[in-house]
Design a protein around this nucleic acid. Structure first.
Lengths: 160, 160
DNA sequence: TTGGCTGAGTCTGTCAAGCAGACTTATCCT
DNA sequence: AGGATAAGTCTGCTTGACAGACTCAGCCAA
């Protein structure tokens, strides 16, 4: 079967949504840091020792995440110690939950462990149900991946 | 407000779902490559020139994605040329659509462009509706991010 | 049959980033 | 005064990214 070249070839990638997201999330460590904050580990030393990140890299990543508005510094003080900082999700950071849950869901299907999943997204409180993500469309359907295509929108630029 | 240390500190990260996913997706270029394949750009030169990836890096990433089972090689032949390879998503690759859509959705909210989104996930065929992802739980709710927590599952290992 | 074109790579040298481990700083407690 | 600790900074080594040149195989036109 011979394929014709994709229509996407006519569109520029310079302002691509994925590129701009990868500027923030596209490296080995950033998502590890976010995972720690998502599970409630908020202090520099705790994040570093659990995630196994080199200190320098953690310093740099935390600064970048703060600058991008995904986390913020929050002072805390343990009894009998001086004030220190911990790191918490902002609303923008919290709104990455669907990305995180989608990744966990994918990995639980395609990279399963013998013992079952180590991490389960759960609805807090009385419900306690397992949380997942699903594709849905304006028309009220739940399309499968094969039924979805990526179309150029108003911000798409023609290719030079 | 003083916080007690998170319960997550008791659990190991050695087999963490996010870590294992980041082994595959956690770098600057892999998701760019996947984006190209998702939008229908499947040939080495096309991917390279659109995504701006160094050739060597693209070679290495394609090989890794094939080995991980996210894409596969598919021979093609243009009229009057010899046979070459193009790269297509496997089912595992296609099932990353929720992750991709979740990222696009997040970026459209928090990194918007003046002109509007450049890339719109769309339900193919008659419907043509815009596709999004939503959190949902076993109990039939649609929890907000703040209502979700990550709990240790059966595969979680206590920390050494 | 020779020479040129093209897609899909490989090779080479340079430079930035990641990394481990030691060192620093500020504040608290005893 | 001395010791403990969280959160870094500093140093030198190694790995990976990168640009640009080169290779290779099959096809075409002359």
């Amino acid at each position: 079967m011979t394929e014709q070249p994709s229509a996407a070839m006519n569109w520029s990638t310079e302002n691509c949504t994925i590129s701009r997201t990868m500027e923030i999330l596209g490296d080995k460590w950033t998502f590890h840091v976010l995972r720690e904050v998502f599970v409630g580990v908020r202090r520099f030393e705790d994040i570093r020792s659990r995630a196994g990140i080199p200190r320098q890299v953690l310093t740099e990543r935390l600064a970048a995440l703060i600058e991008r508005g995904l986390i913020r510094r929050h002072p805390y003080r343990l009894p009998g110690q001086r004030e220190r900082s911990e790191y918490r999700l902002t609303q923008a950071g919290l709104d990455l939950y669907p990305v995180l849950v989608a990744m966990i869901q994918w990995a639980d299907q395609y990279l399963p462990l013998d013992d079952g999943p180590p991490l389960i997204p759960t609805h807090r409180g009385d419900c306690g149900g397992k949380v997942s993500v699903a594709l849905q469309c304006d028309g009220g359907h739940e399309p499968t991946p094969r039924e979805v295509s990526l179309q150029p929108g108003p911000g798409a630029k023609p290719r030079s």
